[in-house]
Each structure stands twice: as C-alpha cells, then as structure tokens.
Write a protein that binds this DNA or RNA. Structure first.
Lengths: 205, 205
DNA sequence: TTATATACAATCACGTTTGTATGTAAATAT
DNA sequence: ATATTTACATACAAACGTGATTGTATATAA
C-alpha cells in the first residue's frame, strides 16, 4: 500500500489509540482482539503492529494520554493563589470530578482501567504506576493540611497527616461510587455537595 | 470413570471452586482456562463442565461463598446491643477489614473481583449485584446516623443522610487503598486508626 | 436385583487470536 | 535521479480454548 506522510502516520496512530479505547471499553481489554481494533480504526492489523508492539503497549499509550491531567488536578493544592488551603483541596477535588463529567475520553479511560482490565502479568506493573500518583496526591494533601493548620483554618485537634489519609480514601471511594453509577444517579449528583461537606467538617469553628 | 458418592462429588465441586479462586487470582479471570483449573483441582475439564456450565458460572459460585459475610458486617449496624449507634458504625467497619486481614479466601475473592476481572458481557451483571450490597449498606448507615442524631450522639449540624454517603465513600476508598497496598504497608496499618478517627469527627462535643 | 442416573475421563472438531514474514508503493534522503 | 526507508496490507502457520460427544464404572433407587 501507498506510504503515508509522517503527519498522516501520526494521525493513523492516534486513530488506532482512539479505536482501542472504544473497543477496550466495550469488550474489556482481554477480549479485545487487535483485529477488531484495526477494523474500528479503518486499518488492518499490519498497521496496528507497525505502531505498537502488542496489545499491552497499545494500552499503555492510551493510558498515558489521560493520565497527564492528574497533574493538572493536584496543581490546585499548592497554588499560591488560594488563601485558604482547605479551599484549594475543595477546588482540587471538584476539578477532578468535573473533568470526569466533561471529558468522555478521560472517563472512558478511567472506566477501562478500573472495571475492564485485569491487573496480572504485563498489566501488574500498571497497578503500581496507578498507585504512584495516589501517593503523590497524599503527600501534597498532607502539606496542604499542614499549611491550613499553621494558618489556623484547620479545626483544632485534627492532625494533618491523618486528614490527608482520610481525604485520600474519601476521594477514592467517591471515584468508585461515581464509576458504579450512571449519569443523573443520586450517587453522582451528590458529589459536589459531598466534597463541600467533607472539607467543611475539617474547617475551624 | 467410576461414579463417586454424593459427598465425594460435593467435595470435588468445592475443590474445583478453590482451584478456580487460585487460578483466577494468579492469571486473572480471562486468562484462566478451565483446563488449568481442572489440572490444579486434580480433575479433567469433564469434571468442571459437569459441575458448572462455564467459566462465568464457576466465577459466580466462587463469589457467592465470600459474599455472605457482608451480611455479618452490617448486622452490627442495627445491633440493639450497642448503645451508641456511632460505636456500631465503627465496629462494623473494623469488622469488615478484620475479615479481610484474617480470611485469605475472602481476601483473594475480593482481589479477584476488583482487580482481576473485566466487567463486560456476562460479567456486567455482576457489577450491579456488587452495587446492591453497597446500597443496602448505605440505607443502614443512614438509619444508624439518624438514630445517633435522635440520641444526641451526632455532632450538631450534621445531616444523617449526608453522613451516610460520606461514610460509604470513605469505606470504599479505604477498601481500595487496602487492596492496593501490601501487608505491613502504611496504608494498611493505619486502617483501624482511620476508622476511629472518621467516626470521631462525627461525634458530638 | 436390576435399571438407571451419576460423575467423571478422553477425544474431537472448530473458531479465534497471535506473531511473523513478505510484498509494495509512495515518501524521503542523498 | 536514484536509493532507501517508511507505512502499511496481505498471507500464513501455530497455539489455544471451547463445547460437544462418547464411553464407562459405579452409586443409588425401585
């Protein structure tokens, strides 16, 4: 077949990633054959194997594209523009769930990663990589709660480190609930209020 | 082959389930062939197909055995033996994580369900079934928080329903962290303290 | 005691997926 | 202008898993 321009090839690559995301989401990673991905992308398996070594590499490439936005989320935490660190935490969490609502690509990717992928063998490593951003988030939460305490915004008697762990769990659970529910569902509609309330519980008098 | 006693047959069935749990946990549900399960159980695929229609049925059977304990967990919530409903909540959550620590069978099953299974097609229904116990738990939490409020144990200004959603998320997140960590890990060791603190935040002055 | 259902083992036919090897026309380097 | 990559499509072989079928020795019920 006729050779494509570099730009065209890059576009093909992206189309394969997009197709993979759709098929992964519909069939699950294991039941996704590269043949199906190729068909959806409008190419043959030859093209897929040209751009990616195998299914795992394709999965990693897809994942990477949606993972960058996590930095954007916890950038709010240490933002010097927000006077009250607890506001920064509230803002950061809200932003995360807003992205989930508004970006179908990110949403699909997260759904694949948490409900449509088996973390064994080649994918076992992914699990640890998923955890790293969580630990980063935890560290930044701890720092933010410390600042809140120093500035007197944190309710007396609460330990910043314990609060960081608590908020991390809260976020993970909220994320779970969000994924398990459907648009318009009670669990999903309540998210903003729950975030507000979670933080409010920790504010000083 | 020689026909077995009913009791022997039942034992074979259980051995197949146990083998399946091990192989599911090691290889993931998709990559688990019934041939491998049979080998580990010390039988042939014929035996597996005799006791179970297919892999999904085997998965469901395995799942059911560990799911019954959830009732045991939220039985604490409505227990009349505990005067302070907030103590009941604390007790209930502690019990759940204690079971995870102490029962390898339950632990493996939950690990399979959340990290080694793709919820598509035959397994998509499982996802909803997983959610039902969660909603039950939510309802019982709400009731318990209401009782706490009536008895004056709940910190003034907190709404029982909002608290129920919050505790549900907290639990889900804690469960996530627990699964993602390893024995002795910080995230895991802190669990009891985190539960105590979560409830303490909601106790009246 | 006999008839039948049971609890498997063994074999087979089939479709699916994977990886690789090869072909090829156009883009790009020289 | 020619040589060489590039970006795929096509073809093929091998492995794997599944479900169905068949065989059979023994429990069990009548």
């Amino acid at each position: 077949m006729a050779r494509k321009t570099k730009a065209e090839a890059e576009q093909t690559r992206q189309e394969i990633i997009d197709a993979a995301r759709c098929v992964f989401h519909e069939c699950g990673v294991s039941r996704t054959s590269l043949e199906k991905v190729a068909r959806v992308a409008g190419v043959t398996r030859g093209a897929v194997y040209w751009h990616f070594e195998n299914k795992a590499e394709l999965f990693f490439a897809m994942r990477e594209q949606s993972l960058e936005i996590l930095d954007q989320v916890d950038a709010y935490l240490l933002s010097p523009d927000i006077a009250n660190p607890l506001d920064a935490i509230e803002r950061s969490l809200s932003e995360f769930f807003a992205i989930l609502e508004n970006s179908p690509v990110v949403r699909q990717t997260f759904e694949i990663m948490s409900l449509r992928c088996e973390y064994v063998e080649e994918f076992a490593t992914v699990l640890q990589e998923v955890n790293k951003p969580c630990l980063d988030f935890l560290a930044k939460l701890k720092l933010t709660y410390q600042r809140a305490q120093e500035k007197g915004y944190l309710r007396p008697g609460l330990e910043p480190e314990a609060m960081a762990y608590d908020t991390l769990s809260f976020t993970g659970g909220l994320f779970n609930n969000w994924l398990a529910s459907v648009p318009g569902d009670d669990l999903r509609v309540r998210v903003p209020a729950m975030i507000r309330q979670h933080v409010a519980l920790r504010r000083a008098g």
